[in-house]
Amino acid sequence: MLEPPERLYNPRDYVETNTGNKVSKKTILCGSQQILLSGKSILEHDSVIRADLSTVKIGRYFVLSHGAILKPSYKPLARVQSTPQSAAAVPISFMYSSLNIGDFVYIGEKSVVQAASIGSHVYIGHNCVVSRGCVLRDCISIADNTFVAPDTIIPPFTIFAGNIGKEVGELPDCTADLMEEFMTTNYAKFVSGTRS
Score class of each variant (00 low, 15 high):
136 L>V: 00
133 G>D: 09
188 A>F: 10
51 A>I: 03
160 F>L: 09
82 S>Q: 13
137 R>I: 06
52 D>R: 04
25 K>I: 05
173 D>Q: 13
2 L>K: 03
62 F>P: 02
147 F>K: 00
141 S>C: 13
186 N>Q: 09
183 M>E: 01
174 C>M: 08
63 V>G: 01
129 V>T: 08
83 T>A: 08
61 Y>N: 00
182 F>S: 10
193 G>N: 02
30 C>T: 09
146 T>N: 07
29 L>S: 01
69 I>Y: 12
151 D>S: 13
194 T>Y: 14
192 S>M: 01
181 E>W: 03
177 D>R: 13
12 R>G: 07
79 R>F: 15
159 I>N: 10
52 D>L: 05
58 I>S: 08
88 A>V: 12
74 Y>V: 04
126 H>G: 07
137 R>W: 10
14 Y>L: 06
26 K>D: 15
26 K>V: 08
19 T>I: 04
86 S>W: 11
130 V>H: 07
167 E>Q: 15
91 P>M: 01
33 Q>P: 13
109 E>A: 11
155 P>R: 09
89 A>L: 15
144 D>K: 09
111 S>Q: 05
46 D>F: 15
84 P>T: 00
18 N>T: 12
36 L>R: 15
148 V>G: 01
158 T>Q: 03
70 L>P: 04
51 A>F: 08
97 S>C: 12
130 V>N: 01
100 N>I: 11
33 Q>H: 14
132 R>A: 11
131 S>F: 04
64 L>C: 05
78 A>K: 14
93 S>M: 05
134 C>Q: 04
93 S>F: 11
56 V>K: 08
24 S>C: 07
119 G>T: 05
30 C>Q: 14
141 S>H: 13
20 G>W: 05
59 G>E: 07
180 E>P: 10
38 S>G: 12
62 F>N: 02
195 R>V: 13
192 S>C: 03
135 V>E: 06
139 C>L: 06
48 V>D: 07
27 T>I: 10
81 Q>G: 05
118 I>F: 02
95 M>G: 04
28 I>R: 10
167 E>Y: 00
195 R>Q: 14
164 I>F: 15
50 R>Q: 07
110 K>E: 14
47 S>H: 05
193 G>M: 02
27 T>M: 09
109 E>L: 06
92 I>R: 13
100 N>H: 15
81 Q>R: 14
87 A>N: 11
58 I>V: 09
93 S>K: 11
151 D>H: 15
115 A>L: 10
135 V>H: 03
120 S>F: 03
189 K>A: 05
148 V>H: 00
48 V>R: 11
177 D>S: 14
99 L>H: 06
136 L>I: 08
10 N>V: 03
150 P>T: 00
140 I>D: 08
38 S>V: 09
176 A>W: 10
98 S>D: 09
24 S>V: 10
158 T>D: 07
92 I>S: 13
195 R>Y: 14
124 I>N: 07
186 N>P: 09
12 R>S: 10
189 K>R: 14
137 R>M: 11
118 I>Y: 00
123 Y>D: 06
38 S>K: 10
65 S>G: 03
4 P>D: 00
